[in-house]
Amino acid sequence: MASTKSADTEGAKQAILDYCLRKGALAAGVADLEALERIAPPGHRPSDLMPKVKSVISLGVGGQTQGAWSVPAKAMGYFGSTETRAYTIAYGAAFFIEGMYQTPAIYCPPDMDNEKGPRVPLQSLKLHAEIAGIGARSLAGDILLHPEFGYMYYASIFTELALEPDQPMAENPCPAPSCVSMYRQIGRTPCQKFCPVQCLSGHIDADGKQAEMHYDMAACAEMSQQYEAVPALLAEAMAAEDAQGRDDILFDPDNKMLWYKMSVGSGGLLAQCFECMRVCPIATKSPLADPIRRSKAKAAT
């Protein structure tokens, strides 16, 4: 996707990416707009959101702390995944671009598509990051991984400023050698084995590369994304035989927790369970995967 850019735009790209890194991003890059437009389905292309978009900038912030990986799974589920640190940087970057270069920019909303429902994102931040070269799809349901930073949260900025695109990663860090070894022994990788709902499966080829990745998103969402439980429970309650039955459904302790989450907008158990990432050596043991490792690496240099 080569394109001709002026020296000014080269400088602008560096300044924007530096801004992102300075504000806390671990990695940042520019995705090839043409590739995004070809891959994303109609309605979800960058130009569908911002008609005059010229560049898509993607950034990633640190995933979990080292301590977070050690908490019990159910507690991990409460952590949620809507990562405000990433969006804050992206928001700031959009202001930075407009202020520095007098060119329109937006922070790409991470929200669901209002027309398509809660399982459909407006834009794929994952696709932006992958094309920008700051993550590659893993066997764990295409969650992006980075060889140095492991598991990250991503955010995107769209701008009418033309910037030189980066290339996707040359190599995919997933599967890690230890995962290949496990697969050779039992036919499954750690993420496949330990998924609570067994929504992951797939194969590794003779070269130790990903051959197939199967992801049952419905099963995954069924466990971790409870918003669909609300109408389901209401329907069950309406169909209950009597008042006691209705009460049992509506005021069941689990369901009361659901009402609580809905009423306060809590992210608890409304995102992902993280079990596949907890057992992923790339997510948890990459050289700069968590603040402790990054701090030690910085001290060593």
Binding site: K74, G77, F194, C195, E222, A232, D254, L269, C273
Partner: peptide, 23 residues
Amino acid sequence: MERRRFRTNHFQRLLELGGGKRF
């Protein structure tokens, strides 16, 4: 179809089985 197939309280799997090696 998503509605028809969705089972409520399925997240109990995570609460009871999660934690990597415990599964």
